[in-house]
Structures are given as structure tokens and as C-alpha cells.
Design a protein around this nucleic acid. Sequence first.
DNA 1: ACCTGAACACCGTTCAAGT
DNA 2: ACCTGAACACCGTTCAAGT
Lengths: 234, 234
Amino acid sequence: MGETGRRARPGPRRALSEREILDAAMRLLDGGGAEALSVRSVAAELGVAPNALYTYFASKPVLVRALVDDLLGQVGPGTLTPADDDWRGAVTRFALALRETLLAHPGAVPLLLGSGFDGPNALAGGEALLDLLVRAGLPQDTASRASYLIITYILGTVALDAAELPPGVPRPDDAARTAARRGRLAGIPADRFPRTAATADVVAGYNSTEQYLWGLTRLLDGILTGPPGRSTAS
Amino acid sequence: MGETGRRARPGPRRALSEREILDAAMRLLDGGGAEALSVRSVAAELGVAPNALYTYFASKPVLVRALVDDLLGQVGPGTLTPADDDWRGAVTRFALALRETLLAHPGAVPLLLGSGFDGPNALAGGEALLDLLVRAGLPQDTASRASYLIITYILGTVALDAAELPPGVPRPDDAARTAARRGRLAGIPADRFPRTAATADVVAGYNSTEQYLWGLTRLLDGILTGPPGRSTAS
DNA sequence: ACCTGAACACCGTTCAAGT
DNA sequence: ACCTGAACACCGTTCAAGT
């Protein structure tokens, strides 16, 4: 391992940074899932001794929390801001963006659920969503409850979705995903699970964007508690 | 649980079984969270060599899946069955029972989200919920989508809840939990998160049973997509 | 301030061997 | 069939030391 050389092409593996560490960690996560992420594997990825990372992160849990919140920060920041009166559309865009960001890194999802949703970027996202709901005209306390309900739905859906995605391979599109699930559903005994078998076509699509939007629409309808029929989502 | 030997008090640590292993694993999980559960710690708990467990479970992931599904099997089996016409009440009872069972073992929740919701008992629970919704009069496909929406809400809520519970100590009641959260919320900058600060009383209660039921009610209202006001839940 | 070597107490899993 | 001893390739973290 050389050092001091100016042209760092194949050059020295020095000059670490938080950014570089988080990027390497995410690379490992994407390649092999949560179990591929270790202090030692990150260090190896960066060509550095394992304990070098402790200069930047006090422990592995601290690193993981930073990684997770960093990912949340990648959700399109403008997704939730103005929303020309169409607040259901804005919530829908936000929900889609957050889901897309997380499912692009399925290995990070169990880490997110394990670390909690309380980093700076998580707080900022919650605030933005809440602000939107208030500006939409919901009473403040209702808006607060509703924002948690929405977050809870997004994360629950994404968690079940991500748990089924194998690490290291690109995420299949909805059609392929549904087809694969339908194949697996063919194996479940119809006499013991008749309703599940009878609706296998729907069950196969549980992880689809379409089911996601269906659920979100029901949820927003329920929040309004008013008569349906004026959905803007989708 | 002794067998052949009559006085197995300080006796031989033999005669293992799947049941005994799962119980020991859950004990460790309850005592120290997910990180306290290792093949070696379970073996030590049972006074047995680490590799002895491989007679019963092919690998740690297999053990974890069994553990998680076993826990799901503990949800009151009758919670969801007849429901004298009051299907919202039945769904509510089911949602409360599932949440209670999982939050009694918060360390198991990240394992559940990581393992997926596809064991035999998970399937049976999904079937029972779906069956209830069909019998309630929902069109079959709508019932199927709705059952997934409900599951997704329950698991998302429980995941965020469990992530905040420290292992090894009994779960605080809602009042204590809310008070502790409010204390922490006092520390967030009101200028950067004005809406969150303004609704801190609500935010403090995000993990309460009351908020849980509020969300569930909105959800069921949305599933009906009809006019509100005839909620049976709670 | 930042990195390394070496060591600590752990992991999950396999293999050959014993009963 | 069921368990053990020993070993393998890993973990996260600490400590003293180097620059």
C-alpha cells in the first residue's frame, strides 16, 4: 500500500471520510444484504484496517443508524413541498418516492426497522408530511395522527416487500414479481387455505405498486372519513 | 419436562427437543434482544454443545423462522373466528391480540420482519382474517387486498413500536411510554420542526393503544369506502 | 488526528468421532 | 439417532503504538 503519491488512481487507500464509509457500506448491503455488512467487510472494501472505522463511527450500531438516515435523506426532497392544492397527489408522490428509495436498497430495510425511525432525516420527512396534511386543512392533531398512520403503512408494506427480495440481484418488475409469487402460491394446499387459494391472483400481487396505491387510497379515504369517490391518487 | 431419569434436578442436560430449543431461544430474546440470540447462547442455555442444535434445526435462519412462526401461533386462535355479525369488532380484537403477542417479545419483531411473514401460522392467520372479511360481505378480491392492508398496518406499527423498546425490561404501560416520549420530544428544535413540536402531545402517544385503534378505525372506514359514523371498533 | 498490529471474547458451521 | 471435541473462517471492539 503506497502512500503520499499525488495521482491516487490505483493509489493509496488513505484519506477516509464518513461519506466514503457510508458509500462502501451501502455497496456491501446492496451486494449481499444485511449480513454482508460488517465493520471488517467495510474496512476491507476500503483497503483499511478494521479499527480505522472507529475514528468516524463509535460503533457498528452508530454506523448503521447513520447509513439508514442517510438513505432517508435521498428521498426526493421536493416530493412533498408545494402540492398545488392536490394534497392527496402530494402524499401519493411522497409515498411512492419513499418506497422506491427503500426498495432500491432492500438490505437496508431490516436495519431501518431495527434502528428506529428517529434520525434527522426521518424527523424532517415526518415534519414535511405533517405540514402538508395541516395545510390540506386537517385539524392539527388529526394531521399528526394521520401522518403516523401513513408512515406506518409505508414502512410495513416496504418491510414485507423487502423481506422477500433476495440481495445482490436487481429488483424484478411488478409483472415478474407477481408471476413468481403466483408460482409459489400454486404450492399451498387449497383445502387448508381456501380463501387464500381463491384469491391467489390478488395475493400474488401483494407487493405490486398497484396494491400499494390501493391501500394508500383506502387509507386516505379513511382519514377523510368522508364519502369516497373523489380520490386523486394514482 | 424430565423423562427417563426420575430425579433430573441437577441431572444430565440431555434429551433435547425442538420445543425446548425454541423456548430457550425466546428466553434469550426476551432477556437481551435479537443480539443475545445466538446458536451458541441457546446451546449454553441448555447446557449442550453448540453443534447439538443442528440435529433439530439445519441452520440459524431456520431456527429463527421456526421461532417467529411459533410466536405467531400463540395469537389467541379463537380471536378471529365467529364474530356475531360484528366484523369490525372481530378485526379489532385480532389486531389487538397480534400486537399484544408481538410486543410481549419485542426482540422477535425485527426477526419477524427479516424472515418474512410466510410460515404456516402466518398463512393460517392471513386465511382467517381474509375469511372474516369475505363473510363480512366484502367482495373476495377486495377482501384479499384489505387483509393485506390490515396486516401491513399491524406489522408496521408493531415494528416501529418494538424498535423503541429496550430489551430485558418489562414493557411500560401507555402512560409511562407517552411520558417518556414527551420528555424526549422536548429536546427537538421547535424552529426546525414546528408542526412536530406543536403536536408533541399527539406524537408522544404514537405508540399507544389508542393511536393504534384510531389508525385501525380510519383504515376500516377507508376499506368500506362508504360514509363514516358507523364504526364498531373500540 | 488518524491509522495499524495484535489481541480479546465472541460468532455460525462442519467434520470426524463417539454412544 | 443424537451428542461432543476440535477446528474453520469469521465477528465487533479495545489497546498500545506509530506517524
